[in-house]
Design a protein around this nucleic acid. Sequence first.
DNA 1: GCATTGTCAATTGTCAACAATTGTACAAAT
DNA 2: ATTTGTACAATTGTTGACAATTGACAATGC
Lengths: 252, 252
Amino acid sequence: MDLEALDAMQKPASRRRGERTRTIPEQIADHVSNAIVNGEYRGGERIREQELATLYGVSRGPVREAIRTLQERGLVNFFPRRGAYVVEITLDTIVEVFNVRAVLMGLAARDLARRKDTEFLADLRTGIVEAQVLARARTTPPQHFARAIARLGGMVAARCSNKHLSRLLRDQLEHTLWGIIWRTRPLDFLTPQRQAAAVREWQKLGAAIAAADDSAAEMLLRRIFFNARDAAIKTLQKARREKISAIGIIRD
Amino acid sequence: MDLEALDAMQKPASRRRGERTRTIPEQIADHVSNAIVNGEYRGGERIREQELATLYGVSRGPVREAIRTLQERGLVNFFPRRGAYVVEITLDTIVEVFNVRAVLMGLAARDLARRKDTEFLADLRTGIVEAQVLARARTTPPQHFARAIARLGGMVAARCSNKHLSRLLRDQLEHTLWGIIWRTRPLDFLTPQRQAAAVREWQKLGAAIAAADDSAAEMLLRRIFFNARDAAIKTLQKARREKISAIGIIRD
DNA sequence: GCATTGTCAATTGTCAACAATTGTACAAAT
DNA sequence: ATTTGTACAATTGTTGACAATTGACAATGC
C-alpha cells in the first residue's frame, strides 16, 4: 500500500474545505488505529517499525511519530527499546470504558438540555426517526441500526457547548478503545425488541432535552449507555462461552 | 541544559523500582508540558524544533516525537509545515475543563463508595485531617493547603477501581489543561473561610463513601469541583479587572 | 496607495545510515 | 535437566543531511 491509496482511503470525498492537510504520521496513526479497532491485530501483538514503514512506503521516522500517537491514545503499550504492543482488552476494560463514556455523554446531554438549541433538537429528532424507521423495518441488518444510533451519540458529543468535552469524546475515545468496543455491539444482541427499546430511550432523552430538564437528560443518556454496556457484555460472554473469537484484540 | 540535568530533575530520588526507564522523547514531552503548565510559554507562542533540540542537547527526531505527545495531550495546536503553537486558554476553556473533571471525579467517587475499601477510607481521612490542620493554622501559605487538597483528589483518581478512568484522570488531565488551571487556584481565593469550607466538603464526601452512598458521593465530589471552579473563575476575573497577568498561557 | 509576483532565509518533513540494546539460540557447566 | 555464559541477529534509538514548504520582504505593475 502506498500513501496515495492510504490518503484516498482516509478522505473519500475530496478533502472537506477548512480541514487542514493531514500529515503522514497522522494518516498512519489513524490507519493503524482503525486496523487495531477492526481487530486486524491480536491483543499483545508486537508492532514493528520497519514493517509499518515498508507497508506505507515511508521511512521509520514518521512511523515512530505515529506510534507515539497510538501510545498517547492508549492503543498500544510502549516499552523502550522493546517495541510497541497492541493493548489487550478484557471484559473489565470494556465495562470501564463504557462507564467513563456514559458519564461524559451524560454531561454533554446536560449541557444540551440547559441551552435551548432548537436546531440541534430538530436534528436529533430527525435522527431518532431514522433509527425508528430502521427498527421497524425488520429486514434491515442490525449494523445499519447500530450506525444510526452511533450517529445520535456523535451528534450529542459534537454539538454540546463544551468544546473540551467534544474533543475528549472525539479524539480520546472515538479512535481508541471506544472504537473497539463499538465493533462488538452489532454482533447479535440488537434484537428487534432491543432496537425498539433503544428508540424509546432516545425519544425520552429528546423529550427531556426539549423540556430543558438537564438532570433527567443526564440520567437518561447514562442509562442508555449502561443498557448498551450490559447488552454488549452479555453478548461477549456468550461468545466466549461458545468459543467464538469475538474480535481479535479482545482476550478470549 | 543537558539530558542528565533534565533526567535528574524528573526523578528526584533515584528511579522508583518497577518503573520503566523513560525515553528521551517522554522526558522532553513532560518537561515542556511542565514548562507550559507553569506559564513559561505565552498562549499562541510558537515552539521551534531546533530550539528544543539544542536546549536538550539532542537532535530533532526525539523532539518531534515529544511534540506529537504534546499535540495529543492538547497542549499545543499543530499545523503541518507551520509548527506547533501553545494553546490559548480562555475563561470559558477553564470552565469546560472543570466541568469535565468534575463528572469524571464524580464517577471515581461513586466507584469508591460502592466498594468498601477500608484502606482507602483510612488514607482519605488522614489526608482530610492534614488539610484540616493546615486550614486551622492560619499562618501556612495557601499553596500548602492547595497541595493537600490536590493530594485528596489524586487519591480518589488513583484508587478508584476503574483503571481506564484513573489513566484518563492522570495522563489526559494531570499533565494537561488541568495542570494549568490548577496553578491558577492558589492565587488568593483560598481564604481561611474557603479553606474551612473545603475541608467540610471533603469530610462530607468521606462520610458518604463510608456509608456506601454512591449517589451522594458522586454529587458531593462534583459540588467540590463546582465550588472550586467558581472560586477560580472569580479570582481570574478579578485579576483581569485589575490588569494582573494571571498566568502566561491564559489569555487576558 | 494597493495588490501581485518573485526571491530567499528559516523551518519543517523525510530519509538513510549508524549506534546501542535486547532477546535468543546454542554451548558449557553444575 | 536446569542453569549460566556468550555470541549474534533483529530491532529500536538517534543523528546529520537533504528536500520541500512557508512566511516575510522587496520589486513590480496597476
